[in-house]
Nucleic acid binder design. Structure first.
Lengths: 225, 225
DNA sequence: GTACCTTGATCCAATCGTGTACCAATTAAA
DNA sequence: TTTAATTGGTACACGATTGGATCAAGGTAC
């Protein structure tokens, strides 16, 4: 697998936990036993358990053992669930969040925020390779969220971006991606940028909605689920 | 081929990266291995990697290896970081997401979904203690998100709920919370439920927006930031 | 020849996994 | 109650891996 044995053990334990091998609030085997089971040093197991503990997945007590955190909606569970969402679900959330973010950016963006967004738009338009275009396309959206000045919203978009990058359905996008579509996207970006510069919240939201519609159309060939 | 071997290696690596040979945040082979693979000296590989590093394409760590600069960070890190955001930021995001979730729930909710939402509404209305009311209040919103049938949206709401539970500014809410407000909230919940039962997407969104407005008013004494 | 690149080699520093030992808290047995 | 066993917490040393830095020698183009 990967280079980090501790990371592998961590992933394995996450899998076994989510698979229900131990009950909520149940007790995991002692560190020493886990070390023997995985055939690694106890320190390595401890590093893996450290990660699980910071996630809130487990709780450790000296002399007692390691216990699953029964509390529902733990972060580890969310991470597992979130990494496997479908493209359709992701697009639905983008349809909700991105226009509103554009609207918020229109009112909150600073002069330098707008310049940064314009820069991303320009570099995406001039990009020679598809790879480069997609990078600046993502950066364009990223900087709009940054302009909202809402930390939570920015982080949520980070999550969306990671999901988009991680899943193999990017291939879907590449297949259906044509030079024509790319030009459309640039036009959309230009319209969004204009609305932001005009401080038109509703205009920015509407332009972003059009853009999202186009992306949805490109990906799925339809506008609504 | 150009006269510069380092440039060739750099171009090759760029190609392999954009081709997706390694995942975002994935690990590249060690410099020594790459040198063997390309049949060049390690110093030459290092020059190529220097260019990639200044571009921000990769990140190098002594003793660990070379890593792709893919995502903005792992999801778990983001979620952990996000638990410290301000109440204002959180409310702004709720203002965006909750009405849209209600709208989506109106079209996607099954009969049992509606029953579950109604149950939470009923138990919240009848709750004797503030503690109990808040539990069923949270459950009401939770079940609306569940009714959207969008896993990502559900997960996002889980994150919002964790933030709400973890932070101390719940105290703020308790201070400004009166029996009067609580009755208002129940009325709002009832209006939302009616709209959901009528399958009125716009009505559910509007009712939820009113509810969010009231919460914002309770927390901050104003409607907008 | 001069300038630049490549190569090969060497050493340093950071990280990781391992192994070992001991401490502290808890539980179970005597 | 006292004692022993179990278990997580901490610390250190060792070897292997890996990137960081430098130097000298050889090759190529101008």
């Amino acid at each position: 697998m990967s280079k980090n044995i501790a990371t592998d053990v961590e992933a394995s334990l996450r899998g076994r936990i989510s698979a229900g091998e131990w009950k909520p609030n149940g007790r995991l085997p002692p560190e020493r036993d886990l070390a023997v089971e995985y055939g690694v040093a106890r320190n390595t197991v401890r590093r893996a358990l450290d990660a699980l503990e910071t996630d809130g997945a487990i709780k450790r007590h000296v002399g007692r053992g390691i216990f699953l955190n029964g509390g529902r909606g733990e972060i580890a569970e969310i991470v597992l669930r979130v990494t496997g969402v479908s493209p359709a679900d992701l697009m639905a959330v983008r349809m909700i969040v991105e226009p509103q973010a554009a609207s918020m950016a229109a009112t909150n963006a600073s002069r330098s925020d707008l310049d940064a967004i314009a820069e991303a738009h320009g570099l995406a338009s001039e990009a020679s390779e598809t790879q480069l275009f997609e990078q600046w396309d993502a950066e364009f959206h990223q900087r709009i969220f940054a302009a909202t000045r809402n930390e939570l919203l920015i982080s949520l978009h980070d999550i969306l971006r990671i999901i988009r990058n991680r899943n193999a359905w990017i291939e879907l996008k590449k297949k259906t991606f044509s030079e024509n579509r790319r030009l459309d996207y640039c036009v959309h970006h230009g319209a969004i940028l204009d609305a932001l510069r005009n401080r038109s919240a509703q205009g920015a939201a509407a332009a972003m909605r059009d853009h999202m519609d186009a992306i949805q159309m490109t990906l799925f060939g339809r506008h609504q689920l």
